[in-house]
Write a protein that binds this DNA or RNA. Structure first.
Length: 934
RNA sequence: GGGGAAUUAGCUCAGAUGGGAGAGCACCUGCUUUGCAAGCAGGGGGUCAACGGUUCGAUCCCGUUAUUCUCCA
């Protein structure tokens, strides 16, 4: 079938033009070295009626075709890795296909197959403001890529690219429509393209075709452009930007092929890499827009169904009716995809890091929904639509749709709360602005509403407008710029890709881990010794620490949360020569032991390796307990809980899992009970080694799918739980003895952490708790432990009764004191004064007396003093008419407080002071009289 | 990673230049009444997030920490 758009559009077939000289000059000026003036002319030939008809492919077909092509050329199809980076703190999100390949390119892991291909979901948020306003900015996008880790290089990369693009059974693009850019100095690449069949006039030299991220691997690249014809353009034909690579909509960059061949050293030089790599990236959305003849990426089958669903939810708005609404439709479609995938991969909305990205995307979508007249929660309804579009390559989205929609829905509700509080703050601000007689809301105020309370400036402008006020947009922008500058200055520059640790990458010796069945290996041959980053033949005490590899080892290397084993290395003469302090996986998979050398280690000699068995046994118990806990959590809380991290140490285990909301104490008890039930049931723990498919059929739960090779170990605890796991486990659950949860806390929105102990540590924990209870029982004099709560309750009642009795008694005493204290009235300067030292408990009592005084007002002024435990307290109160006359209690007390070596103050009608000199009380009282005389 | 804010009764929130911690709802008791959030009277419930500092005195000011919200990267 032929795409109808193409059939009717005859202009396409007659389109042709020469690029003007001006456009070429513009190209030269963009490069850093304008002196390189190899005049590169290119043109589009007249193809007339011979032009090829575009294949009609869906996005699923395009994706599959790409992967199939490279699989046929010996590539392993890699699954689209989770958007949440595994073991990579430098990345917030997986932001490209190569991001998941970093571990291969930097040599920390050697891949099974050096040729790999993938369609990798990715998230980028640096240009979030442009999403919806341009033709192809997205937050979530897919990157098709083929990768060579030290295998094929320019020749194959170029020839295969051309075959995929133009081959009849593949993309079958018209070669006349394709343009290739090359780095001018990279004559090899140009030669390969010519050899593959690209016409010379379709090859453009571009100075900026050099991929360089600073220190690390770098190299020239080739970009491939598709000419969609002038009628797709947004600039005039003679515009200086109208060339492949310029700022235009006509020449669409669809593929970038990086020839990674140099190491950019810290000194700023470029050294050839020992292993040259290929890394390519083709934007799926872009190439689909070519196939589907879409003006922007949004009019493809990847986005249109979401837009149509949004139309249904809106109050009658239609896509492509006006530009403003279109932007909103596009933003919603884009963000719906991104948040659906991000949440599906285990991220959750929160106030920092990637969780905050999700929150922001959801909020932007909601605001744009409001612009389309959608005022209730709606975004969650788009989750199944996204799932349906992507199900061929990402079936998991549809499977988790309910959970994802639930998370989004609750976040939509939350945002409404934010908007409500923001609105009431805005009303205050508007009122204040009006009261000050201003016609415009301060930019800083609008920014504060946005910055601190999350109230969007668009809404501020709108509501202020309703009240007849403008908003100082310039002021707002300048505040925003200050904020940006602050953040930029504080940014740390973490390296995004390291250089290969060549030494370890080159060690290919074979080492076998046998610790699943034995904890001691005799006659283990020492294959490699590394001291100070150099391979050596022997090491002794002088080399404090060394790294060693044996042909066989019982030492477990840290992985999957389980910590490394420790133990000893003994030579043939029976002398301990080294202690194993840490074990990690080397790039080629060997267990690399870090040892403290105490004797002599010689390459080629044999040693007896012994794992610290007691420690190992504790680790095994905690690891099996982790599996039981994981399964119990899923059984009790629901299948949405997924492991978010785990640590298995000898003395405890730590387990992080995703869970939306709180875990009730009843649920926690159920989980704990369920784990212990499995222990008491004495279930055998079985481990089998098999291939992935069989394991999946067994129902095994994979935690990080990409970490597993062809052969996987599957650990099952009866029918209760089956998981992929390369770690060590007990052989029967009864070895765990007892399982006890020590704590349950939150470690961020949506992630909870449980810490637990088993066996001896569980017993110790319970013992410690019991001993605390026993101590408490002794303290409250409870004859039996079970009496403790009752005793405490009774004591609390007693305390309460005593307190209340005491209060009553004190009030009575105060009243008695008052009766006599208020008798002694003096008149000073026409004002009546009561100045008395009383014998009460403290300031509280003085206040009570003042309250009494206030009821009866026997005098105009009251000054009370009391002494307690070396401290003196003063209180002054004034009758209301005295306050009106301008006499302030605070002034009086400030005048007399120095007499008791203190200071004080208070309100006009009442003030208090404290001091450290009770002997000064009479002096203070006397001074009160003098004060009144003035 | 960097900024701005919040944390007060079971819940929702007031509060004061640093000097007696409050309301509404909920809860308990009694009375009245039995029709849609019933009424009236009385009562219980607080380490004002935690710790440290300044001060005669801190729920309030300053600092640290925790949690939550929010903006930027």
């Amino acid at each position: 079938m032929i795409n109808t758009c193409f059939k009717t559009n005859t202009r396409l077939s007659v389109m042709s033009e020469w690029l003007t000289t001006t456009s070429l000059q513009a190209k030269w000026y963009r490069g850093p070295w304008p002196s390189l003036q190899a005049a590169v002319l290119f043109f589009v030939s007249v193809t007339g009626d011979e032009r090829k008809v575009m294949k009609e492919l869906t996005s699923s077909q395009v994706r599959q075709m790409y992967l199939d092509f490279f699989e046929q050329h010996g590539h392993k199809i890699m699954p689209s890795a989770s958007l949440v980076p595994v073991d990579d703190p430098t990345l917030l999100w997986i932001n490209s296909g190569v991001a998941t390949m970093k571990k291969y390119f930097d040599g920390s892991v050697v891949p099974d197959n050096p040729r790999m291909t993938s369609s990798q979901k990715s998230i980028r948020t640096n240009d979030i403001e442009n999403v919806g306003r341009t033709a192809r900015h997205h937050t979530l996008f897919e990157m098709l890529g083929n990768f060579s880790v030290g295998d094929y290089f320019k020749h194959d990369a170029v020839h295969w690219a051309w075959e995929l693009l133009t081959g009849e059974q593949w993309f079958d693009f018209d070669p006349e429509k394709l343009y290739i850019t090359v780095y001018p100095k990279d004559t090899d690449a140009k030669a390969e393209w010519l050899d593959a069949g690209v016409k010379e006039d379709h090859i453009v030299e571009a100075e900026d075709n050099f991929w360089d991220i600073g220190q690390g691997p770098s190299g020239p690249d080739s970009e491939i452009f598709y000419d969609r014809g002038q009628e797709m353009n947004n600039v005039a034909e003679d515009d200086p930007e109208n060339y492949p690579g310029g700022e235009n909509e006509r020449y669409l960059e669809i593929w970038n092929i990086v020839f990674s061949q140099f190491n950019h050293t810290p000194e700023g030089t470029y050294e050839p890499l020992p292993h040259k790599n290929i890394d390519t990236g083709m934007g799926l959305e872009r190439v689909v827009s070519v196939f589907q003849h879409a003006r922007t990426n949004f009019e493809t089958d990847l986005f249109l169904p979401i837009i149509r669903a949004t139309e249904q939810l809106s109050d009658g708005k239609k896509y492509e009716a006006n530009k403003t609404d279109d932007v909103s439709f596009k933003i919603i479609a884009d963000h719906a995809r991104a948040v659906t995938f991000a949440i599906g991969d285990g991220a959750l909305p929160s106030n920092e890091g990637r969780g905050y990205v999700i929150r922001r995307l959801i909020r932007r979508a909601i605001l744009n929904g409001k612009k389309l007249g959608i005022n209730e929660a709606f975004l969650y309804k788009l989750v199944p639509v996204v799932g349906e579009i992507m199900k061929s390559h990402y079936p998991a989205v549809l499977e988790q749709a309910d959970y994802i929609a639930g998370v989004i829905h609750s976040e939509e509700d939350r945002f409404n709360v934010t908007l409500d509080t923001g609105l009431s703050l805005l009303n205050d601000t508007i009122a204040a602005t009006k009261a000050a007689g201003k016609t415009q809301l301060d930019g800083a105020e609008a920014f504060k509403l946005f910055d601190t309370y999350g109230f969007p400036v668009e809404l501020t402008t709108e509501y202020a407008g309703d009240e007849g006020l403008g908003v100082d947009q310039e002021g707002f922008k300048s505040e925003m710029e200050k904020q940006r500058a602050r953040a930029r200055n504080a940014r740390s520059s973490a390296k995004s890709m390291g250089v290969q640790r060549a030494l370890l990458t080159d060690i290919k010796s074979v080492s076998k881990y046998v610790g699943y069945s034995q904890l001691t290996v005799e006659n283990a041959k020492l294959l490699d010794i590394i001291v100070d980053e150099k391979l050596v033949d022997q090491a002794d005490e002088n080399a404090d620490s060394a790294e060693v590899i044996f042909d066989m080892t019982p030492f477990y290397a840290e992985m999957g949360g389980q910590v490394a084993d420790t133990g000893s290395i003994v030579d043939e003469a029976g002398h301990q020569v080294a202690k194993v302090t840490d074990v990690q996986h080397a790039p080629n998979g060997q267990n690399l032991h870090t040892v403290k050398v105490t004797g002599k280690l010689v390459k080629g000699a044999t040693y007896t390796l012994t794992v610290d068995a007691a420690r190992h046994s504790k680790i095994e118990k905690n690891h099996t307990a982790t599996h039981l806990l994981d399964q119990s959590l899923r059984n009790v809380l629901g299948t949405h809980t997924a492991q978010a991290g785990s640590l298995v140490e000898p003395h405890y285990l730590r387990f992080d899992f995703t869970h939306f909301g709180q875990v009730t104490s009843e649920d926690l008890h159920k989980v704990e009970q369920m784990v212990n039930d499995q222990i008491f049931a004495e279930i055998p723990v079985k481990t089998v080694e098999t291939d992935i498919e069989t394991a999946k059929k067994m129902g095994a739960i994979a935690m990080f799918s990409e970490k597993y090779g062809k052969r996987v170990r599957v650990v099952s605890v009866g029918d209760f739980n089956t998981e992929f796991c390369g770690g060590d486990h007990v052989s029967n659950t009864n070895e765990l003895g007892l399982f006890k949860i020590v704590s349950e806390t939150g470690v961020g929105a949506g992630v909870r952490r449980i810490e637990a102990v088993t066996a001896g540590d569980a017993f110790k924990f319970l013992n410690d708790e019991e001993s605390l209870l026993s101590q408490t029982a002794a303290l409250v004099k409870a004859p039996q432990l079970k009496e403790v709560p009752h005793r405490v309750e009774a004591l609390q009642g007693e305390v309460k009764q005593l307190e209340s009795d005491q209060r009553a008694l004190q009030a009575k005493m105060a009243a008695q004191q008052a009766a006599s204290a208020f008798d002694n009235i003096e008149t000073v300067n026409g004002t009546t004064l009561i100045a008395q030292q009383v014998n009460v408990a403290g300031m509280g009592q003085l206040r009570q007396l003042a309250d009494d005084w206030k009821q009866k007002l026997p005098s105009d002024v009251l000054v009370l003093a009391t002494a307690n435990e070396g401290k003196a307290s003063l209180l002054v109160a004034m009758a209301p008419d005295q306050v009106k006359a301008g006499h302030k209690a605070g002034d009086l007390i400030k005048a007399i407080a120095p007499a008791i070596n203190g200071g004080g103050g208070g309100r006009p009608d009442m003030a208090q002071a404290g001091g450290k000199n009770p002997d000064g009380i009479s002096e203070a009282l006397a001074q009160a009289k003098t004060w009144l005389e003035k």
